[in-house]
Simulated scan of single mutants.
Amino acid sequence: MVKEFCQKWGKRIATPQMLVIAIVTLAASFIGAWLKQYPGLSLLGALIIALIIGMIVQFPLRKWYVGSDQVRAAGVKDAAGLIANKLLRLGIIMLGFKLNLDVLFTTGIKCLPLAAIIVALTVVVTYAICRWLGVDPLLAILVAGGTGICGAAAVMGISGSIKVAKDREEEKSNDEVIAVAIVAIMGVVFALIELFVGPLTGLTDTQLGIIAGGSLHEIAHAVAVGAALGPVGEDMAVIMKLSRVLMLVFAAIIIAIWWDKTKSEVKTDGKRKVAFPWFMLGFIIASILGTFVPFIRVAAPVLVDIAYIILGMAMAALGINVNFSVLLHRGRNAMIASFIASILLVLFVTLLAVMFF
C-alpha cells in the first residue's frame, strides 16, 4: 500500500507542470505577503491578494506556456488542483499555531460561547437565505461557512469536509473560488463601514473590537479595523476573531456529518462514506503545542508566517484554475445572500457587544 501511494503521488509531483505551478504560486504568495503591508491592501490580506494574482496569472500561463498543448494544459490543471488541495490542509493545520488557547480560555473566556452562538446562527441563516435565493447547496454551505466563521480558510476547510461525485469535482472547485471571492468582497465592504461608522456610534473601544472580531470575515479584516481602535480594541478584535476561528473545527465536523446524511452523492459498496476532516484535528494539535510547549510557543510566530505562505500558494493555485464565466453567472445570488447575512451579523454582534461588554 505504501509503495502504491508513493508511486501514485510521485508521478503527479514529478512533472514539469508541477514545478512551474509551484514556482508561480510561491511567488504569488510572497508578493501577497509583501503587498499586504500597504494601506488599503491590508484590508484584503495576503491570501486574497494571492488568489487575485493566481486569477490574473492564468492568462499568460495559458498563452505562453500551455498554448495548444492539451497534455500540458491538463498537467497545469492537475498541478494547480493538487497544490490547492494538499497545501490548503497543511496551511490550516499550521494556522493552529496562531491560536493561543491559554489566552482564549482566560482573557477570551466570555468570547467563546458568544462565538459559538454567532457562528451557528450565521451559518444557518446564511445557508437558508442562499437556498431561498436558489443557490446550489454546495455553494450555499461554502458561502455560509465563509461568512459565519473566518473567510477563505473556512470556505476551504469546509470544502475539505465535503466529498462530491467525480463528475462534480470541477464544479466544486469553481464554487470554492466563488465563495472565497464573495466573502473577500463582503469582508472589505463591511470593514470599511465599521472603520468609518464605528467611532460615530459612541460605543467603547472594547465593544467596537468585539464587533469587528465577531462580524468581519477574514482575520486580516478584524486586525485592520481593530488596529484603528487602539491597543484595547485591537486585542478584543483579535481574541473575538480567533474564538470564531476555533469554531471552524466543530463546524467542519458537524457540516461533514450533515452533508453525508442529507446531500452526499459518494457511496462505497452501497454505503455512504463520511468525509471526516481529519486535518482539523491537526489544527487543534498545533494550537495545543503552540500554547503549552515552550520552544514551540517561541517559534509559533515563524510557523504562522510559514502557514500563511503555504496558504497563499494554495489560494494562488485555486485562482489559476478559476472559471470566470462560472464565477460571474453562479455568484450573483450567493453574493446577495452573503450581503444580507452580513448586515444581520453586524446588528446581532453589536447587540451582544452592548449586552455583555
Score class of each variant (00 low, 15 high):
Leu139Ser: 07
Phe276Asp: 00
Gly214Thr: 12
Ile255Gly: 08
Leu61Asn: 01
Lys63Pro: 01
Ala33Trp: 05
Arg330Met: 01
Leu47Pro: 12
Phe250Ser: 05
Ile193Trp: 03
Met55Trp: 04
His217Glu: 07
Lys267Leu: 12
Gly75Tyr: 14
Val164Tyr: 00
Ala79Gln: 08
Gln17Ile: 01
Ile129Leu: 10
Leu82Gln: 11
Ile21Met: 06
Ser29Tyr: 05
Leu95Asp: 01
Met186Ala: 14
Ile31Asp: 03
Gly75Cys: 08
Ala314Glu: 05
Thr25Cys: 15
Phe348Ser: 13
Leu242Trp: 01
Val125Trp: 10
Leu216Asn: 03
Ile306Ala: 13
Ala237Glu: 05
Glu171Ile: 09
Arg168Tyr: 01
Ala152Thr: 10
Arg72Ser: 11
Lys261Cys: 03
Leu208Gln: 11
Arg332Ile: 15
Asp260Thr: 14
Leu104Met: 11
Ala252Asp: 05
Thr206Leu: 13
Ser287Ala: 15
Val57Gly: 10
Arg89Trp: 09
Gly148Pro: 03
Gly209Gln: 06
Ser68Asn: 13
Leu216Gly: 01
Ala212Thr: 06
Asp260His: 12
Phe339Cys: 10
Trp258Gly: 05
Gly331Met: 09
Leu26Pro: 00
Ala227Cys: 06
Gly209Cys: 05
Gly75Met: 11
Ser287Arg: 09
Phe324Trp: 13
Gln7Trp: 04
Trp64Gln: 05
Ala341Gln: 04
Ala316Met: 11
Gln70Asn: 12
Ala222Ser: 14
Asn321Tyr: 01
Val298Trp: 04
Ser243Leu: 06
Ala14Cys: 11
Ile320Gln: 09
Trp132Lys: 15
Trp258Gln: 02
Ile296Lys: 07
Ala74His: 11
Leu208Lys: 13
Thr126Pro: 04
Ile285Arg: 08
Ile219Tyr: 04
Ala74Gln: 15
Val223Ala: 03
Ile309Pro: 00
Thr106Val: 01
Gly10Cys: 12
